[in-house]
Each structure stands twice: as C-alpha cells, then as structure tokens.
Nucleic acid binder design. Sequence first.
DNA 1: AACATCCACAACCGCATCCGA
DNA 2: CTCGGATGCGGTTGTGGATGT
Length: 355
Amino acid sequence: MMEIDENDLKKGPWTPEEDQKLIDYIQKHGHGSWRALPKLAGLNRCGKSCRLRWTNYLRPDIKRGKFSEEEEHIIINLHAVLGNKWSAIASHLPGRTDNEIKNFWNTHLKKKLLQMGIDPVTHRPRTDLNLLSNLPQLLAAANLSNLANPWVDNVLRLQSDATQLAKIQVLNNIIQVLSSASAPNMEAINHFRSSSIPDQNQLYEYLQMNAKLEGLLVNGSIGFPTHDQMQSKLTNYEANFQLPQLSGDQAQNIINGLKMYTASSNSTECVDQVANSSYSIPPSNVLPNLVSASPECSSIVSQIENQINSNDIISNPSSISITFEPLGDIMENEASDSYWKDFIEQASSQSWSMS
DNA sequence: AACATCCACAACCGCATCCGA
DNA sequence: CTCGGATGCGGTTGTGGATGT
C-alpha cells in the first residue's frame, strides 16, 4: 500500500490527483529541475519519482496499448544487436519507453523466444545452453541427427558430414562462452586477446562465419524453415564462407581461455574433457583453410555491410550480435559511430520473414 | 465463495554517467 | 582536473487483477 519514507515523501502508485498536478505544472512551466519540481508543483514526492511518472506514463507523446507485430520484430532484432540497452532500443520505437519495452521483453518476448528454442540472451539456438555439461554428448547427438532443436537438426540433416558440424558447433560454443555477454570473464577474454594466437583476425573471420550460421539457424520465419529453404541457404552459405584453420597453438589458447573461464565455476572436469576430446578442435585436414584474413577493422565493417546488403544470404542483425571484445571495440569507436547508427537503422527495419 | 497462484506492469532502487561550477 | 548534484539506465520489486483450484 501507500508508503511514506523517512522524509515524509510518498512512494508507490500515483493517484489521478497527483498525476493532474504533475501534468498541470509541467504544461505551465516545463519540468525544469526535477529535484525542485515536487515542491513547486505541490507534490509530496521525490523528484525522481516525478520524472519517472512523467517520462514513462504521463508524457503526451507516449503510445499506449499493445505492441504491434512490427514493433515486436524491431525489438527482437534490436535486442540481438544491442542487448539489454532498453533506452537505445526505445529510441527506435517512437512513443515507447525503455521501461515499457523492458517489461514487454521480460514478460512476452523472452518466453516467446524460449518457446521457439532460441536463447533470448544470445539469440542462438538453445543447444548452446548448458554447453559445458553437454559437450560430451554433442558429437553423439550430431551423429544421430537427433538434437532437440529443430534448426540444428535441419542443418545437421543437410550436412554430408555430421561429425564435422559437431566440431564446428563445439568451437562455436567455446567462443560463445568466452565472449558471452551474460557472463563475461574479462580475464579469459583478455587472455584470448593478448596471448599468442597468431592471427586474431582469423578468429574474427570465424566469428563472422559463426554468426552467418547463426543467421541461418535463428533468422527466417518464426517457425521452422522448410527443407528447401535450408538447402538453398546452406548452398549459398557454403559458397561464400569458409572456416578458419586453427593451429595447435590457437587451439591450445582456446582451451586455456576456456580453462580460465571455467576455473571459477566448478567445471574443470568438462574443460578437461574438452581439452582431451578428439573433436574439441577442428583439425586442419577436416576444415578448409581461410581464403583470406581481413586484417583491418574496416574490412570487417565492410563485410558486415555486404552482409546487410546482400540478398543471397539472410541478413539478420543478430548475425552481428557478437560480443567478442575486439568487435566491441569497433562498436565503441567514435569514428564508426555513424556506421553503427546506419546499421542499427537498417537492423530495425529488417524484414523478419524469410524471403 | 474463498483462497492460492500467476502474471503484467508501474514504480522503485542503486549505480553509472553527465555536466557545470 | 575534480567534485558534487542532476539525470539516465537497467535490474528488481511490489501491487493488483486475472485465473485456477
């Protein structure tokens, strides 16, 4: 119920009378200093409470009511790019507040994605979840083509070599864990960055490829792509992307990074399994070499641009939802601000349906 | 009808960031 | 430069209505 704090300021739900006082005052005088406003407006509230009530509820330009399907898709796409940056997402949805979007996400969209078998944090198929405990089962699952996730299952069916895909998947997962936005381990990531990996650009390439695959898996219709759709996408995908070759040193670094990452989470056994398993790292004779490494950030940017502009491969904003630090640096770089602004504009207008 | 549980959402809290003196 | 107040942000909580038993 209504509560009064130690300064005799009211908390909790606003009454219509309070709302009216706030509206009247702001319409006459503007809000000015929020701290000073309550006294001037005759409200027994703190300034913060007034600001929140105004910006989230009383502001005249607020759009109320249900989110449209289009808004829903925009939110999902932007979330894939921006994560829980609610205010940034809100800035692309006129009339919607960050609070409203956040609530909508937590109450509706998260569940919806989960039901679709997509991890709402990573926007990846949920087979990535529980990675560390699932690793030993992954290969067997791939060989049986019996994964619970329909997207992955589809892809696996289409692969001539399910084992190879399992290897890709494992490496995906390792990198995903190391770069996870939900639980970043800076020590491990920095290890990755500063250690003796010969060419980090190969990892960038790999992540992009990974993102492409993710795009194939996650994007498209809400509902499962048909066999023909998957076949066609995969054909394009395979024609355009190749996997990086990782040397033994690189592999060891990944394992070291993973060890550091998991050292704090009682998963050392799993790490050892990864380290010792025959399928944890793609050997060079299984995975094709990189055609070319792209040494410059601008190259990555242009590749992403091509990706956005290309019609042949699904261009899903979530395909850039990589939180691996070096890419994060690019996103932080002021020089590329305008690029990202453009990108986000495009992302927010991406068509959701598979064409 | 009464009670319990679930669910959606407004509002709060604590921390981060901004900005002017 | 740095300090402190103002504002913004994201996570979380509390409340009330809806639904289930």
